[in-house]
Computed example of a mutant assay.
Amino acid sequence: NQEEESTSSFSMELRAQPSVDDQLGLIYQHFDHTLDRTDSLTGTDDNQDGIRDDIEAFLNMLEVEEPVRNALKQNARHVQDNLHYDFTEDTPENEDLAFEISKNYVKVIACEGFLGMPVRDMTNTSKTLVALTYNTKARTMAFLAYNRLLDGN
């Protein structure tokens, strides 16, 4: 079956990449057209796990051990968390909430580090997940509003 051979070939190509972030880059090259570019800030999350379905599909394609995939999903969930709130108003409540969300990144770093991911791959995959998540103007503007509240924290 030609489809099975193609899938097997792509899996081999993924496994040949030197890092998880390189795998994500390869997946993006082949499947960027599948990214959610709707007007919805949070996008589609049919299984309600806190990860946009298109990004979860990318993570599910990775040729990595399941604990690494789960840590990356935790990272994706964290990156998307701020999109569930309106941070356009600079209020003490919004500052506190933004800071609470940002503190959860420590858990992501701890999990990825515990699993032995190289630091460069941890930072690069995080940057890639940010780029994939904030792939529309509205999402980028929401991220900037959230990030402004973190200024100095």
Rank of each mutant, 00 (worst) to 15 (best):
Thr38Trp: 13
Asp39Lys: 06
Asp39Leu: 07
Leu41Thr: 08
Thr42Cys: 06
Thr44Tyr: 14
Asp45Glu: 14
Asp46Phe: 07
Asn47Trp: 04
Asn47Asp: 15
Gln48Glu: 13
Gln48His: 15
Asp49Leu: 11
Asp49Lys: 11
Asp49Glu: 11
Ile51Met: 01
Ile51Arg: 00
Arg52Glu: 10
Asp54Ser: 03
Asp54Gly: 01
Ile55Met: 01
Ile55Gly: 00
Glu56Trp: 01
Glu56Asn: 13
Leu59Asp: 00
Asn60Ile: 08
Met61Val: 06
Met61Thr: 13
Leu62Ala: 02
Leu62Cys: 01
Glu63His: 12
Glu63Ala: 15
Glu63Ile: 06
Glu65Asp: 15
Glu66Ile: 10
Glu66Lys: 08
Glu66Thr: 15
Pro67Cys: 08
Pro67Thr: 10
Pro67Lys: 03
Pro67Ala: 04
Asn70Leu: 10
Ala71Leu: 02
Leu72Lys: 05
Leu72Asn: 07
Lys73Cys: 05
Lys73Asn: 11
Gln74Met: 12
Gln74His: 05
Asn75Tyr: 06
Ala76Asn: 10
Arg77Gln: 12
Arg77Thr: 07
His78Val: 09
Val79Gln: 04
Val79Glu: 03
Gln80Ala: 08
Gln80Thr: 06
Asp81Gly: 00
Asp81Cys: 05
Asn82Leu: 08
Asn82Asp: 09
Leu83Ala: 01
Leu83Thr: 04
His84Lys: 13
Tyr85Glu: 14
Tyr85Arg: 07
Asp86Trp: 03
Phe87Ala: 10
Phe87Gln: 05
Thr88Cys: 03
Thr88Lys: 13
Thr88Trp: 08
Glu89Val: 14
Asp90Tyr: 08
Asp90His: 14
Asp90Gln: 13
Thr91Cys: 03
Thr91Glu: 11
Pro92Met: 10
Asn94Lys: 13
Asp96Cys: 11
Phe99Ala: 15
Phe99Asn: 13
Phe99Thr: 11
Glu100Cys: 00
Ile101Gln: 00
Ser102Tyr: 10
